[in-house]
């Protein structure tokens, strides 16, 4: 037992070094912009870059829209399948897992070919159309996470019994969804949302291949042209990811808290 604990510590510390070194190194590197002393020059130059602001806000807006689209598709479906079509569940689940198997680059390639200017649905013909396509692409990429999050949330409540109880008390469908289902799966939904946000913000391939000015391509461009700013960008990206995950953690903890009290 004692010996086991010793080895656990060894493994844990080795892992901690591997995972923390790059973070520390990135931070250190990002401060090296001025010769001889540590400074925040790289951050200053990044933040002052109008391109940074433009691309980041583009990605943020896109991420938010993706979340809305994703939720609009996933939540009613998961709800409906649990409630009325339990037989379809394995198939729906299979479809939602496909994006983990089909590489994103292949999916976007399909988009480019399918929705080119010569097609029935020439989405890539206009900027807005391309934005829409990009958003749908992101929604597809986040499908596995989103669906699982919402479905897990729904599983934790006895949907059928709850709905029947509510209906027997005379509640309408709107009331049921807004007052019963939503509050109970809110944490799950938000978790899925934050995860989607983290994925979309730094995504590169889809944006690059659809030629849209998102944050990911901007980072790559900086990587090719600057020395220290990329490290600063990496720190910022990490901070954003960390914030999203932190919020998920907070939410789940909050939920555990309230459900325990009940």
């Amino acid at each position: 037992m004692k010996q086991g604990t010793f080895w656990s510590w060894v493994v844990f510390i080795a892992g901690a070094i591997y995972f923390f070194l790059p973070l520390i190194a990135t931070f250190e590197f990002s401060m090296r912009a001025r010769r001889g002393v540590y400074s925040f020059d790289a951050y200053r130059s990044v933040l002052a870059d109008p391109q940074f602001r433009d691309t980041l806000s583009y990605s943020v807006v896109l991420a938010l829209l993706t979340i809305v689209l994703g939720l609009a598709i996933v939540t009613p479906t998961a709800f409906w399948v649990r409630l009325k079509l339990p037989r379809l569940r394995p198939y729906i689940e299979f479809i939602t897992l496909l994006p983990l198997v089909i590489p994103p680059i292949v999916i976007v390639f399909g988009y480019i070919r399918l929705y080119n200017t010569a097609s029935y649905l020439p989405l890539t013909g206009s900027l807005r159309g391309t934005d829409f396509l990009l958003m749908c692409g992101y929604a597809t990429l986040s499908l596995p996470y989103m669906y699982r999050a919402v479905d897990t949330g729904l599983r934790s409540i006895d949907l059928v019994t709850m709905t029947e109880a509510a209906q027997s008390l005379g509640a309408s469908w709107t009331t049921i969804i807004l007052r019963l289902v939503l509050p109970n799966v809110l944490v799950a939904i938000l978790s899925g949302a934050f995860l989607t946000f983290a994925i979309v913000i730094g995504e590169y391939v889809l944006a690059a291949l659809l030629n849209r000015p998102a944050f990911g391509p901007y980072m790559v461009w900086m990587g090719g042209n600057r020395a220290y700013e990329p490290a600063a960008l990496a720190v910022i990206a990490f901070a954003i990811t960390w914030a999203c995950m932190g919020l998920i953690q907070l939410l789940t903890r909050f939920q555990k808290h309230t459900s325990k009290k009940r």
């Binding site: 990135t26 995860l195 490290a231 990496a234 990490f238 990811t241 995950m245």
Partner: peptide, 21 residues
């Protein structure tokens, strides 16, 4: 918690982090 972050810390920033390391 960290794994949640790190598993999503892929792509471009990760490359930068390794270049800095």
């Amino acid at each position: 918690t960290f794994s949640g972050v790190a598993s999503n810390f892929a792509g471009v920033p990760l490359a930068f982090a390794f270049i800095a390391t």
